[in-house]
Simulated scan of single mutants.
Amino acid sequence: MPPLQFTLTGDFIELHNLLKLMGLADSGGSAKARVAMGDVTVDGQVELRKTCKISAGQRVKLDGQTIYVRAPD
């Protein structure tokens, strides 16, 4: 799968919201559950905090799909 790109509109986005917006989770509840199960990595490390603040330059991975987070233009 080609990596996905997400451009921030502010300083950060919470992890569960990013997964939902990018279509990697059907709902916010589903996204939170996947994070809680340890299925998500941020910059190569398992992330268990559902509301972890994801900033520009970070890489999020779930089910073999990678999201690169970019700063607003």
Rank of each mutant, 00 (worst) to 15 (best):
residue 1 M to V: 11
residue 1 M to E: 13
residue 1 M to N: 11
residue 2 P to Y: 06
residue 2 P to F: 00
residue 2 P to Q: 06
residue 3 P to D: 11
residue 3 P to M: 05
residue 3 P to C: 02
residue 4 L to S: 08
residue 4 L to W: 07
residue 4 L to P: 10
residue 5 Q to G: 08
residue 7 T to W: 03
residue 7 T to H: 08
residue 7 T to D: 03
residue 7 T to L: 01
residue 7 T to M: 03
residue 8 L to F: 12
residue 8 L to V: 06
residue 8 L to N: 05
residue 9 T to Q: 14
residue 9 T to S: 10
residue 9 T to N: 10
residue 10 G to N: 13
residue 10 G to M: 07
residue 10 G to C: 04
residue 10 G to K: 14
residue 10 G to S: 15
residue 10 G to I: 03
residue 11 D to G: 01
residue 11 D to H: 08
residue 12 F to G: 01
residue 13 I to S: 08
residue 15 L to D: 10
residue 15 L to W: 14
residue 15 L to T: 13
residue 15 L to G: 11
residue 15 L to M: 10
residue 16 H to I: 02
residue 16 H to V: 00
residue 16 H to Y: 13
residue 17 N to Y: 06
residue 17 N to L: 12
residue 18 L to C: 14
residue 18 L to R: 05
residue 18 L to I: 07
residue 19 L to I: 01
residue 19 L to P: 03
residue 20 K to C: 01
residue 20 K to Y: 06
residue 20 K to P: 04
residue 20 K to E: 08
residue 21 L to T: 03
residue 23 G to E: 01
residue 24 L to G: 01
residue 24 L to R: 04
residue 26 D to K: 12
residue 26 D to C: 00
residue 26 D to E: 12
residue 26 D to G: 09
residue 26 D to R: 14
residue 27 S to W: 04
residue 28 G to R: 10
residue 29 G to T: 04
residue 29 G to S: 02
residue 29 G to Q: 05
residue 29 G to D: 09
residue 29 G to P: 12
residue 30 S to E: 15
residue 30 S to P: 01
residue 32 K to S: 14
residue 32 K to C: 10
residue 33 A to V: 00
residue 34 R to T: 02
residue 36 A to P: 03
residue 37 M to R: 15
residue 37 M to T: 03
residue 37 M to K: 13
residue 37 M to G: 08
residue 38 G to F: 09
residue 39 D to T: 00
residue 40 V to P: 03
residue 41 T to N: 02
residue 41 T to E: 14
residue 42 V to Y: 13
residue 42 V to S: 14
residue 43 D to F: 09
residue 43 D to L: 05
residue 43 D to E: 10
residue 44 G to W: 12
residue 46 V to K: 14
residue 47 E to A: 12
residue 48 L to I: 14
residue 48 L to F: 12
residue 50 K to Y: 00
residue 50 K to Q: 04
residue 51 T to K: 15
residue 51 T to Q: 11
residue 51 T to D: 15
residue 52 C to Y: 14
residue 52 C to Q: 11
residue 53 K to L: 09
residue 53 K to V: 05
residue 53 K to W: 09
residue 54 I to N: 09
residue 54 I to A: 12
residue 54 I to Y: 14
residue 56 A to F: 07
residue 57 G to H: 05
residue 58 Q to V: 01
residue 59 R to Q: 15
residue 61 K to C: 14
residue 62 L to W: 01
residue 62 L to Y: 02
residue 63 D to W: 07
residue 64 G to Y: 05
residue 64 G to L: 10
residue 64 G to P: 13
residue 65 Q to D: 07
residue 65 Q to M: 09
residue 66 T to L: 04
residue 67 I to S: 06
residue 68 Y to T: 09
residue 69 V to E: 06
residue 69 V to N: 08
residue 69 V to R: 02
residue 69 V to I: 15
residue 70 R to C: 08
residue 70 R to G: 07
residue 70 R to A: 09
residue 70 R to M: 09
residue 70 R to I: 06
residue 71 A to Q: 15
residue 72 P to C: 03
residue 72 P to R: 07
residue 73 D to Y: 07
residue 73 D to W: 05
